[in-house]
Every structure is written in C-alpha cells, then in structure tokens.
C-alpha cells in the first residue's frame, strides 16, 4: 500500500493524531477533505450498490454499516489481523485498509456470497466445517476469503504455502492446525494431519 493511503487511514482511525503539531497547518484542510461526503457506486456480491460516504469511510464500515453486510469483521486497527478480508476485483484485500471511495466502480465479494447457488456451503466453507477449522467464528470470514483467493491462484498449494498465505490472518482459537487441514482438503489434496 502506498504511504499516502496509509497516512489517510491512520488519520481516519486515530483522530487524536490530527492534533499532532507535526501535521502542520495542513491538518485542517486534510480534516475537511476527509469529512466531505461523496457518492460511491460499486458492485457488491453481484449487485450494484451506491451510498454516500465520507472521504475517510473505510470499505469495512461501508460494507458493515452502509450495506448491513456484517460478515466482514473488524479485529484490529493496524491492518494486521485479516478478519476483514474481502475480494476486490477478485483479489484478497483487507477492507479495513481500503477507503470506500477508492474502490468505486470495483467488484467486491464478501463472505455472504461464498455459498453455492443452491444455498449450500461453498467448497472452502464446507471444508472448514468438515475439518473443524473454526471455533468462535470471528476470524472465519477473513480466513475463508483469504483461502479462496489462495486457491484461485494456486489450486494445489503445499501445506507450507497455505501457512504462508494465511500469515496475515490471525486466529486465536484454532492454533491453525485445522484451518490448514481445511484449506488442503478444499484444494482436493489428501490431508496429512489428524
């Protein structure tokens, strides 16, 4: 992510930082800009949606508060935990680290659209249930979205590749053992561990 975007997010997340004198006189302009409302339109889970957002509104907030898609979770404020992972134009992205305005015109997919057309669990979702890859369920949407993105790119990953790919998603409950198992199973490969 570019530094400017990182800075914007930091300011949005930590309002007290704006009073930091090191921000200089630009702080006030910056603040106005981030509060200015704008209309965004994007495709979410196959439907075109639009809404009024502030410049500082994060994609995670837009999805959760604006669209009621609360399956996308927020577990941290430093872009570290991965609970918020969605797909933006087919690529895994941390929705807490993207401004809603910046994905205008994009196609966004969330956990709410990962099931099969008949409503049954999708391949990755089913593997998570089959292999007990979740406990409290809070990290789960992000895990499923990250795993699905991995498998789209690398259909037969090694266990090492799976662990590496999940490095940006923190789970406090499972110890990852069963998550790794689930992702391997979802890729159609034999599962080594019990």
């Amino acid at each position: 992510m570019n530094d400017a975007l990182q800075q914007q997010i930091l300011i949005a997340e930590h309002p007290q930082k704006k009073n930091d004198p090191s921000n200089g006189s630009g702080a006030v302009d910056e603040r106005d800009r981030e509060k200015r409302m704008a209309k965004v339109t994007m495709t979410v889970n196959g439907k075109s949606v639009s809404g009024e957002v502030e410049g500082r509104t994060l994609l995670s907030s837009f999805l959760r508060e604006g669209l009621g898609l609360t399956g996308t979770h927020v577990g941290c404020d430093t872009s570290q935990c991965g609970a918020c992972v969605v797909h933006v134009d087919g690529v895994a992205a941390k929705a807490c680290s993207v401004l809603a305005m910046d994905v205008a015109g994009s196609t966004v997919t969330t956990i709410e659209a990962m099931h099969n057309p008949d409503g049954s669990l999708g391949v990755v979702q089913q593997a998570f249930q089959d292999h007990h890859g979740l406990q409290c369920g809070f990290c789960t949407p992000g895990m499923v979205m990250t795993a699905a993105a991995l498998l789209a790119e690398t259909p037969k990953p090694t266990e090492h590749e799976v662990r590496h790919a999940l490095e940006g998603n923190i789970c406090r409950c499972t110890g990852y053992h069963n998550i790794v198992k689930a992702v391997m199973a979802a890729s159609g490969q034999p599962v080594s561990a019990e």
Partner: peptide, 21 residues
C-alpha cells in the same frame, strides 16, 4: 458430530455484538 453453529459463522450470519444495530 460436525458443528451446527458453523453454518452461520461460515456464511457471515453470525451475530456478534458489533453486528447489532
């Protein structure tokens, strides 16, 4: 037995406090 609660967690239908409006 596979967990019944998984279905809602895996489909984004869990209802955590922050999800309540």
């Amino acid at each position: 037995t596979k967990r019944r609660e998984d279905v809602r967690f895996l489909t984004g239908k869990g209802r955590y406090t922050a999800d309540i409006t």
